[in-house]
Amino acid sequence: MNYIDFKSPTQLDEARTLLKELGESAMPVAGSTLHVFLRDESPKVAVDIARLGLSGIRLVDGIFHIGATTTVTALHEHDQPGWVLDRVASEFVTQPIRNMATIGGSSVRVFPWSDLPVALLALNAAMVITGDEERTLDAETFFASQPFHHFALGDLLTSVRVPALTAGQGFAYLKDRRTSTDFSRCTVAAWLSLEDGKIAGVRVAVGAAVPMPCRMPDVEQALMGARPGPKKFEEAVQAGLDTARWKGLHGISDEYARHLASILIVDVLNRAHQEAKGE
């Protein structure tokens, strides 16, 4: 990135006005940890949005409201019944990067290996965008393509809302990598709810081994209403894998990426099931 100036607004409206005025030359920045991956060399004005009061985590009516500039370290350290994003944050690269990276930044610019979108898809998060009017998109819509398509000039992602896990529900998240600092080669997350011993709700999401993080609808479909268990999970995964386009990263083949996903999805479903059962 080629920054030529730095602006540091302290109010949301001020920031949005600046972004509108600067137009294409503006670059909203918070943690800035993803900028190393951006190849845009045109002159940019950095607009710091980390001082707008957009950080923090609140539980409101069973929904966690997470400010967009909440750092991954804050996600990691938060401790409250129903909170699960600490499981994702603990696997997020290294501590120095966790200290800087934000949930918003990690959501609005998506790479194949991005961690948080996979979890947010599985958790059916709501993404709150503040523009001239505030609007909310569900995670599946938000991550259907690069999220910047949803933003008009001056729009900012201001909050991410994640339902707290309740009794009878489970969540699990896994990623495969060569070292602790590696990009993920396959990221999976599963959310599952049980009623009368059957699956009443399930969401499975995958990343890294596919071009963009996505849900696995055929796997979910095969599980709805079924009695959960390792064998059922394996059957469902095998039946539903072909809906995704598997893509190997970092030297692995597409075939192995698909295989890896099949193993990890079963793993997260098993773990989520265990949790839903209260084990």
Binding site: T94, R178, T179, S180, T181, D182, F183, H250, G251
Partner: peptide, 24 residues
């Protein structure tokens, strides 16, 4: 080292060429 079929190295950086760190 990952090369393409023309002999160009594809992973000449520490992001893609992985070394252990102390946490590993």
């Amino acid at each position: 080292y990952l090369f393409n079929d023309k002999g160009r190295m594809l992973n000449a950086n520490f992001g893609d060429y992985k070394l252990y760190t102390l946490s590993d």
